[in-house]
Design a protein around this nucleic acid. Sequence first.
DNA 1: GGACAGTCCGTTCTATATCC
DNA 2: GGATATAGAACGGACTGTCC
Length: 349
Amino acid sequence: MLYIEKRRINTDNVYTIFGSECHEIIQDYLAKKIDRAEMSKSWASFVERWEDDPTSFQFDTKKIESGYLDNLTHYFKHTEGLNYPVRNEKPVIAKLHDKDGKLLVFVGYVDSEYTDEDGNLHLIDFKTSSKTTFTPKNLPKKSMQLLLYAIAEHQRTGIPYDKIKCKFDMQKYCTVHYQLESGKWKTSAQERSQWVTKMANKLKTKLPKVDIDPITAEEMIKTASDFNNMDNLPESIQKQFFITNYYIEVKISEETCDKLEKKITGYCNDIYDLESKEDIKTYLEINYPYDPDNFYCKKLCAYHSSREFKEENGMIEPEVTESLEVNDIFGGEDESSTNDDDLLNLLLN
DNA sequence: GGACAGTCCGTTCTATATCC
DNA sequence: GGATATAGAACGGACTGTCC
């Protein structure tokens, strides 16, 4: 039996606050609890409450603030709906085995999930962050959580991996579809709040071809950029552009999931090894000393930002904590003692 | 006028640096 | 972890010139 102490680690910041709200709003929309107008209104009203609250978390700069808010405002006005029943925050359980056959159970919640008409299961993770770090090199690391959910759903339903589609909905961005002079269509990922501005050079080429003189073309492009839409442009030009959500799709296969299982169980074994050290606190103090001037140490390190660490070092007043008994969630000595069905029922009902 | 080659230049991708 | 800024490499669309 393993006991996990409930601790509150305060990792809130302006991005977690906004991120949570964005999740809720889009999930309500996809679940058809609210319509598009209500979604837009709900977002506007949240921003208003945030602006009126003198104690609210703030963005680092006004430029970052306006970029973030403008992009998301555009998202809630223009994001695509789905024609399928959507399940939000669905609990999933993945059961992995390490190299010694020890069972490790992981529990998570899928942001949104739906099944299309071809029987493909789509798992969506919403992201309000920048796409900068979602490079091909980093994607495997970023995708671990989504892939784990895919493994969980594969185990539960038996759906083959090639029918499971995982994607990140990058809410600050849109995919701009534009037509080349050859008639061929291309796409470009752009920040939502300035997608028209980013098409200015293309418009500069296209407008003269429909007999718009250079001065008028320049004025038209400026107006379009200012309003971030192409409503003022000739219809034949408008037809050469449209936007959709920007998704980053995660490739999934039996092989990638096998690799992930090995990686995750390896991490768990490292944690077991670390936790089994006789004097872990001395070990951590020597190898990972606390540096109060280091941002990572103060805000991001799970150990140094924990209530326990702060209490022990007199950084905060002690607080009474309650304990939660968990039925061998992370694997015990005897695998047969884990009642998976009970745990599943607990989570799904 | 169509096909092709070469050049220009804008866009995209990626890595890195820096800050909080 | 989040963000932005910047630089360099790679890519490819648009344009131009030449040839037939």
